[in-house]
Design a protein around this nucleic acid. Structure first.
Lengths: 136, 136
DNA sequence: GTCAGTGCAAACCCTTTGCAGAAAG
DNA sequence: CTTTCTGCAAAGGGTTTGCACTGAC
């Protein structure tokens, strides 16, 4: 299907050798804007595909995708990472009770961040982290 | 010393029963604006105090302090948490190479976040997480 | 004397790693 | 063929937990 072909080209464009497992995982991840934990992706792959993907391969693949800029790692929960299929800059809303991670459609306007909270939730705090690395 | 007395009152004001270990840890944490990991706090307590504080107590105490709003937990690294003695709203700069966590003095003005980076570092990305909980 | 806090070690959980077998070109 | 990826299981590391002991009032 052309869908798979598109994924193959996308992986190649990011310098990633397309293997069956990587294509399956990318297919699930990039299907729509979403945030999946490693575990959720594993379960989705297991449910969706006819193929088997091991835990190690899921983690290896996620790290590779993040490194190559195909997806973004979101550090919102100290116990697990989320992976975001949307790589453009945007904020997130994390519900510590439900473990739900949502996009914040708003701009980077700080005071506006808390303006449009969903109903039924109470803000705990806003965290802004600029991640940097040594230049060389 | 009046310093310790001040800590005792601060803990009590947050509904925390002041014990020797909690006073010691609070004394180290709140001495100045800083970000310490659990491990760093443990080492500081071991070096600084004449008393012994166990690992379990350090973690229990940190969680209690965060819960009571005495300090803030900073989730910048997927492998460990940092604890911030400054509870007012401000951003952070995290160097993934050195593990160094710094305050961003700037306001919440988003475009300004990347303006005043220290020398020798390259930005990887900006992450904004609004943490919420269910209202009841 | 009672209740909460502390300490030790073991358990936990997510993530990474080592290495043998499989796959791709 | 040769190189890279995959899978399994075991290791790793920060954090939490169970339970007996200690300490405060």
């Amino acid at each position: 299907m052309s869908d798979k072909q598109h994924i193959v080209e996308l992986l190649a464009a990011h310098g990633i050798i397309p293997t069956r497992q990587r294509i399956d995982l990318a297919h699930i991840l990039l299907a729509k804007p979403q945030h999946l934990s490693a575990e959720q992706l594993m379960e989705a792959a297991w449910a969706d595909g006819d193929h088997h993907v091991s835990k190690a391969t899921v983690y290896n693949t996620l790290n590779l995708f993040v490194e190559r800029g195909l997806i973004r790692e979101i550090i919102a929960d100290p116990t697990k990472s989320f992976y975001d299929s949307t790589t453009t800059e945007h904020g997130h809303l994390y519900n510590v009770d439900t473990g739900e991670l949502m996009d914040i459609p708003a701009s980077g306007n700080h005071p506006g961040l808390l303006a449009a909270l969903p109903e039924g939730v109470t803000p705990i705090g806003v965290e802004i982290v600029v991640r940097v690395k040594n230049s060389c």
